[in-house]
Amino acid sequence: MHDLPLDADAMEWAARCELAALYRLIAHFRMTDLIDTHISLRLEDGAGHFLINRYGVLFEHMTASDLVKINSEGQVVDTLFPDHRVNRAGFVIHSAIHAARPDLHCVIHTHTAAGMAVSAQADGLRPISQHALKFYNRLAYHDYEGIALDTAERERLVADLGTHSAMILRNHGLLAAGSSVADAFQNIYFLERACQAQIQALAGGGKLLQPAPHVCEHTARQFEQDDAQGIVQLAWDAALTLIADQQADYTA
């Protein structure tokens, strides 16, 4: 990790570096959409602040210095990088969840081809793969209301999310969150792969099999086993090795 900038808080800088790594990994797995979509991380500063990307930077190029600290009203409160610009749609979606769900520290929103395709299907995500069964009866849906620029949409979005940590935004894309960066990454990875599998299975044109409901629920509970968080951390640590050669860059 690079030396901390003058006046930088060590805990905040560590959070910036971890979030920058997540942006790079989302790019590595081709879940980006030019300068659109966002990932945010709540800061443990007791003030309700969170970090989000500087508008205009590709995920592939994201660094700790490109992340912007904002408050729940979307105002930049960043003393390190006060001139960075934030996308309003990103603020609306992420601020809603951070304000309503203190258990969800990291929120990821994507516009992938597979995610958008499933979001446009009336049945949503179908329980036809093991990856999809992770979300069996544990996936929310939010109807499309246009580009997310209206803060009034926040209440409806949060109401639709309920107690879940993953959601399909109809005719729009995917959203996954977690108690940590590692947890959120695991959720978006599985949700994206489940959508990819569904689109490819439907393209095959044959009859699709679905496990019995009790098997689906059993599998979903298996994903929630006692050692789940340990496995999530192992997966995150392994994923970081894919961008190890970029560490000096993204921690700048």
Rank of each mutant, 00 (worst) to 15 (best):
residue 57 V to Y: 10
residue 30 R to M: 14
residue 169 L to Y: 02
residue 214 H to Y: 12
residue 115 G to D: 07
residue 213 P to S: 12
residue 163 T to H: 09
residue 107 V to Y: 06
residue 226 D to L: 15
residue 251 T to L: 13
residue 82 P to G: 05
residue 189 Y to F: 13
residue 240 L to S: 08
residue 115 G to V: 04
residue 94 H to F: 11
residue 221 R to E: 15
residue 207 K to V: 15
residue 46 G to P: 05
residue 67 L to S: 01
residue 151 T to E: 15
residue 166 A to R: 09
residue 86 V to G: 01
residue 187 N to A: 12
residue 22 L to H: 00
residue 31 M to F: 11
residue 56 G to K: 10
residue 57 V to S: 14
residue 169 L to K: 01
residue 88 R to S: 05
residue 152 A to E: 11
residue 121 Q to D: 13
residue 53 N to S: 10
residue 112 T to Y: 10
residue 142 H to Y: 08
residue 86 V to S: 03
residue 173 G to V: 02
residue 55 Y to Q: 03
residue 68 V to A: 09
residue 181 V to L: 01
residue 8 A to N: 03
residue 44 E to Q: 14
residue 76 V to N: 09
residue 55 Y to A: 03
residue 224 E to Y: 07
residue 231 I to Y: 12
residue 30 R to N: 15
residue 76 V to D: 01
residue 21 A to P: 00
residue 10 A to K: 12
residue 225 Q to W: 14
residue 122 A to N: 11
residue 81 F to I: 12
residue 153 E to S: 05
residue 189 Y to W: 14
residue 35 I to A: 08
residue 90 G to F: 08
residue 106 C to M: 07
residue 127 P to A: 13
residue 29 F to K: 14
residue 180 S to M: 11
residue 98 H to R: 02
residue 100 A to G: 09
residue 64 A to H: 05
residue 124 G to P: 05
residue 211 P to R: 08
residue 177 A to T: 13
residue 117 A to V: 05
residue 196 Q to P: 06
residue 122 A to L: 13
residue 116 M to C: 03
residue 236 W to P: 01
residue 34 L to Q: 01
residue 15 A to Q: 01
residue 142 H to F: 10
residue 192 E to A: 02
residue 125 L to Y: 08
residue 9 D to K: 04
residue 157 L to M: 14
residue 204 G to E: 08
residue 147 I to C: 00
residue 192 E to L: 03
residue 18 E to D: 14
residue 87 N to T: 08
residue 63 T to V: 07
residue 20 A to G: 11
residue 185 F to N: 11
residue 146 G to M: 04
residue 130 Q to A: 08
residue 158 V to P: 07
residue 74 G to C: 07
residue 61 H to L: 05
residue 132 A to L: 06
residue 96 A to G: 12
residue 73 E to P: 00
residue 192 E to K: 11
residue 63 T to L: 04
residue 161 L to W: 09
